[in-house]
């Protein structure tokens, strides 16, 4: 009798557990409602707008920064820059065409060239080559003198 009762209790627990599991599953993973995609899309849209606003502000700042840097460095792009909605104004250096160059000049970096105008300064013709060469000679002579001293000291140590 006891065995039968235990078997019945076990069967009830198994069945009850299965039912309870099904109920819990229903509560936890309920099927998506029909209007949820729309809500998600709206939320995503709001998030995207917010991100776009942030990105727009950031890109505008970057554009101004790049423009100022390019104007300061006189960078002349070879291609016409694409316009963007964040462009406040096109810098003068970007609109000016790239300087005409031959094959020998194609590999050169854009270099600001002084142009002749009334009251212009004489071009900078200073060159550090002589100073560099002299510095090299001085360093070599100094190094040789140091080596000679070191050898002399070694001979004294051995002696």
């Amino acid at each position: 009798m006891h065995n039968l009762g235990r078997a019945a209790l076990a069967a009830m627990m198994i069945v009850g557990a299965g039912t309870a599991k099904a109920q819990i599953t229903t509560l936890v993973a309920s099927p998506p409602r029909k209007n949820e995609p729309a809500q998600q899309a709206a939320a995503q849209q709001r998030e995207k707008v917010a991100q776009d606003s942030v990105a727009r502000v950031a890109m505008t700042g970057m554009k101004e920064w790049v423009d100022s840097a390019s104007a300061a460095l006189a960078i002349r792009p070879d291609t016409v820059p694409t316009t963007s909605d964040t462009a406040v104004g096109t810098p003068r250096a970007a609109t000016s065409p790239a300087p005409k160059s031959d094959s020998s000049a194609s590999g050169r970096t854009s270099e600001r060239q002084p142009e002749f105008t009334d009251g212009a300064r004489a071009p900078n013709t200073a060159t550090p080559i002589a100073a560099i060469g002299l510095a090299g000679v001085v360093l070599i002579l100094t190094g040789m003198a140091m080596k000679r001293r070191e050898r002399t000291a070694r001979v004294r140590v051995r002696g």
């Binding site: 080559i129 560099i132 510095a135 090299g136 190094g143 070191e150 000291a153 070694r154």
Partner: peptide, 23 residues
Amino acid sequence: LDARRAGSTAVIVCGALLLVGAA
């Protein structure tokens, strides 16, 4: 002495590099 030898070698190498650059 070893340090002095290394230093003199470094000075000579630097001078040689400068000369090579100028040349």
